[in-house]
């Protein structure tokens, strides 16, 4: 429990640090860039929104830094991240809110799938080391070494086209209205096949190799020999003794990968024009949409921290030694 409390404390501290940095950065840029944009649009933005942007970006120079900081924290607590310039007058939170489900749905699901498939295959590859299975390893190494961008473009060229069933871009057909009906979900799934496949192909090899190597390492441990000597079934030794121990390092890696789901997906979303957070960020950067950029960064930070926290919890559940003091 002490371990848990310490980790939780660490994450809260990190979150606070990230938020504080987010507060200071715009204030350190000379001649605030948002200023001019607001000035251009002064007539269109209502006064409440301007106040909120003032607080976020420190345009309100009359207040002391400390009171600026307090109003900033208060605003964040209400979930107010300002207004997106590009999507004017939509608030940043609602832009993010409509992009997040796509990112989480596609990248989140495929990250989890790739981890599960790769780890499972890795367990077998490690257990059957020294057999014909080893011959397949160069293939996975090759697949995981292809640059993603290239893999995405190749798959678009090969599998999409006027007469292809697979769409080359977007999250759904332009005419459709997003909703929870079969027609739309089916359409969205069809759009996700190609990006999902490319993500899985490019990341499954890494998990596989990591798990295989850990299995090989663990297989040499004394307790594995003991398990064999006990006459336990091969399957039981593989799962309860070898894989159970070999999994531990992968769990930390998985936490890391989950954290990057929100932030590390520009390439996928760019190649497939997929309407997720990554694409929003790319658009925001090219359009100098500072409130949106800030919002994305904050979201990414929170996602990374949350995922690592989850990984910590999983690790704690899987490894009794961490539950110990120290």
């Amino acid at each position: 429990m002490k371990y848990f409390a310490r980790r939780l404390g660490f994450y809260i501290l990190t979150l606070w640090a990230a938020i504080t940095i987010n507060f200071f950065i715009p204030r350190m840029i000379p001649g605030n860039p948002v200023d001019s944009l607001i000035a251009q649009r002064r007539g269109e933005i209502d006064s409440n929104a301007i106040k909120s942007l003032d607080i976020l970006f420190g345009l309100d120079k009359h207040q002391s830094l400390l009171s600026q900081y307090w109003s900033y924290l208060g605003q964040l607590a209400h979930g107010d991240l300002g207004i997106s310039f590009q999507n004017f007058p939509e608030p940043v939170t609602s832009v993010l809110g409509s992009a997040l489900p796509w990112t989480l749905g596609l990248i989140g699901t495929t990250t989890i799938l790739a981890f599960l498939i790769g780890t499972l295959l890795g367990v077998f590859a490690g257990w059957k080391r020294g057999t014909w299975v080893d011959g397949l390893l160069p293939v996975t190494t090759f697949l995981s070494s292809i640059p993603y961008f290239w893999l995405g473009l190749i798959s678009v060229t090969l599998f999409t086209g006027v007469d292809s069933w697979l769409p080359s871009s977007g999250g759904y057909d332009p005419g459709l209205v997003p909703g929870w009906d079969f027609g739309f979900i089916g359409n969205a799934l069809r759009h996700s096949i190609l990006p999902a496949a490319t993500i899985i192909i490019s990341s499954v090899g890494g998990w596989l190799l990591a798990m295989r190597n850990m299995m090989v390492t663990v297989s040499a441990e004394d307790y594995i020999t003991v398990a064999h000597a006990k006459g336990l079934s091969d399957r039981r030794v593989m799962t309860k003794y070898a894989a159970r121990n070999a999994l531990l390092p992968s769990v930390s890696g998985f936490g890391m990968a989950l954290g990057l789901v929100v932030g590390g997906t520009f390439l996928v979303e760019y190649v497939f024009s997929y309407p997720g957070v990554g694409l929003q960020l790319l658009n925001a950067i090219s359009g100098h949409d500072y409130p949106l950029i800030q919002g994305v960064f904050l979201t990414v930070t929170v996602a990374v921290l949350a995922a690592n926290f989850l990984a910590d919890l999983a690790y704690m559940a899987l490894d009794p030694r961490t539950r110990k003091e120290g």
Binding site: D222, Y223, H228, A229, K240, N245
Partner: peptide
């Protein structure tokens, strides 16, 4: 498999590491 442990068991040299650390 059936023979092992029921007829012949072993205490290994590395008894320190002979136990599975996670169960």
């Amino acid at each position: 498999r059936a023979f092992r442990w029921s007829q012949l068991s072993i205490v290994f040299q590395g008894a320190m590491n002979s136990l599975n650390p996670v169960t």
